[in-house]
Design a protein around this nucleic acid. Sequence first.
DNA 1: CAATGTGAACGGGTTCACAGCC
DNA 2: GGCTGTGAACCCGTTCACATTG
Lengths: 232, 232
Amino acid sequence: MNSIGRIPDATVARLPLYLRGLDVFPVGGAATVSSEELAALAGVNAAKVRKDLSYLGTYGTRGVGYDADFLRFEISRALGVANTWPIVVCGMGNLGRALANHSGFAERGFPVVAAIDTDPDKIGVEIDGIAVYGPSALASVVAKHDVAVGIIATPPEAAQGTADRLVDAGITSIMSFAPIVLTVPDDVDLRAVDLATELQILGFHLHRSRLVGGADVSGDRERDLLVGEGPV
Amino acid sequence: MNSIGRIPDATVARLPLYLRGLDVFPVGGAATVSSEELAALAGVNAAKVRKDLSYLGTYGTRGVGYDADFLRFEISRALGVANTWPIVVCGMGNLGRALANHSGFAERGFPVVAAIDTDPDKIGVEIDGIAVYGPSALASVVAKHDVAVGIIATPPEAAQGTADRLVDAGITSIMSFAPIVLTVPDDVDLRAVDLATELQILGFHLHRSRLVGGADVSGDRERDLLVGEGPV
DNA sequence: CAATGTGAACGGGTTCACAGCC
DNA sequence: GGCTGTGAACCCGTTCACATTG
């Protein structure tokens, strides 16, 4: 019984997973789904599903479950996925090109409408159907295509400058893949994804589990460590 | 104090950020760094830095700070980055190719040693210097190169099958970019990154701020996440 | 004196368990 | 009977504040 309230960040982060899980039900199929089923589809547990959905409203039927179509509609509404948010990709290196072509973005309402790069050989041409502009064109590109989100896929050295330019152009949502800390104004929403960092977290567990066999994890049972040859 | 106990997951996830932040200090430079400085370099706050580092041991000097080199060494040791963990990339589409070429991986101790794809035109050739094999060769590739981590960058339909094959080949650390829930044995460490989901989280805030935006009451710039669009 | 190291307070998120309703 | 909706308990991580130490 909740029409207006605050949605916890942790819940917001899971809503897209629920929406994704609902993809298995055909639109208009009049299917019902229990919290247990949806939990499996989203990779969480049932209690979390019920709690999360309760923040949006009372959309289930006790003893039955949730109507898949209705739930999809309500989650979509909460997330605002009815809108499409045009993206500009900054930096057309390996990663930038892959992101610009990523079909999953457009499918979820985030079409890539333009790209930015500093390489004179790329500026003015189309790469995989995406027009590439120079940095100075950013503001006009944003205005022309009503860009809502900027993706930073530049080398680390160029990332802060790119962020600054995006902010100047009026962008308030940025997703960065650069492995450095970016500084942006408070009203700008910044999400940072560092792929190497993610791998290192995996590496921690890997490292720990390979030590098993020795007594404990007190730091002595290590193989020799190569100092000084460190990263970067 | 010093004896290493269990390190909280949240702390583990930040250790790579500290390591990354320490990159600004030249190796062997004998620099000292305060929790305040390191916090800025890693994008967190000072209390968190001190608490996190205290889980590793007492490596600082009161009134002075931390020795950058020593700290780098100790964090590296805790993370196990002295080792290198060879990677196999499964799925050489846009994203897979970008990941296979991502220089940041090798720099951080995760060299991509091979790739897997089902496309007969790709099997047997090298793409950007990475040898591409068919799925049936996975086990031998893993054994030959001592592969420790598998990256799944296949289409969603092929992701579960790929995960199964990686597990069969003895891989216990998997990073998946496929937008579905994968099922793996308990002893397998799985990290899922869904780029479209990340964007949708950004989209939520965008959507919220555009709804509330404009009708700005007093100077309070609070981010309230409101559900529903008000009365009717 | 300056900055670490750390108990203690705090707060958000997860889980429990059961009342409420179909 | 079955499943949702939700207060309450619980757990974990964050923040505070200060005693401690070079």
